[in-house]
Amino acid sequence: MAAPSFSKMAAPAMEQILSDLLEPDSAGIRQATERLREALEEPEGPEGLAELLGGAGRPQVRHLAALVLRRRLRKLPQDLIDRLPHVVAEALERETE
């Protein structure tokens, strides 16, 4: 069965991809890496990461979302780059509560 396109999946699917990357299974990590690569080609991909940065349930997923965003900073849409300081500030506020 083919996976649904990322544009229909948004942040919940991105959260699953990042969770899969955190598992100790090499084959699963390879598959998740490919899915992440594909997801980041979609316009909603970086937005999904930004959403997870502040709202993912697991701290490890929030960390990984931050790392991926940081690595791709120059490739992000300008409007997202402009909003990132606010997104990060909100995420930090939630972390300290």
Rank of each mutant, 00 (worst) to 15 (best):
L40M: 14
S26M: 06
R37L: 09
G54Q: 04
D25E: 10
V61A: 09
L69V: 11
G45V: 02
P77H: 14
R58H: 03
A89R: 08
R74E: 15
E51A: 07
V61H: 02
G28P: 02
A27Y: 03
R58E: 14
E93C: 01
R72I: 06
Q78C: 04
L69K: 09
V61S: 05
R83C: 07
E34Q: 13
L49S: 04
D82T: 12
E44W: 04
L84F: 05
E38T: 13
H86Y: 09
A39V: 11
Q60Y: 01
E90R: 11
P85D: 15
P24W: 09
D82L: 14
A66T: 07
Q60H: 05
G55T: 12
P46Q: 12
I29M: 08
R30M: 13
P24H: 08
R70M: 12
D82P: 00
E38S: 11
R72S: 14
L49T: 02
P85W: 14
L73E: 09
A32G: 01
R71N: 12
G48T: 06
A66Q: 10
A39D: 13
P24E: 15
E47F: 09
A65V: 04
A65N: 02
A56H: 00
L69C: 08
P43A: 13
D82G: 03
L73V: 04
L67G: 07
R83E: 14
L36M: 05
V68H: 03
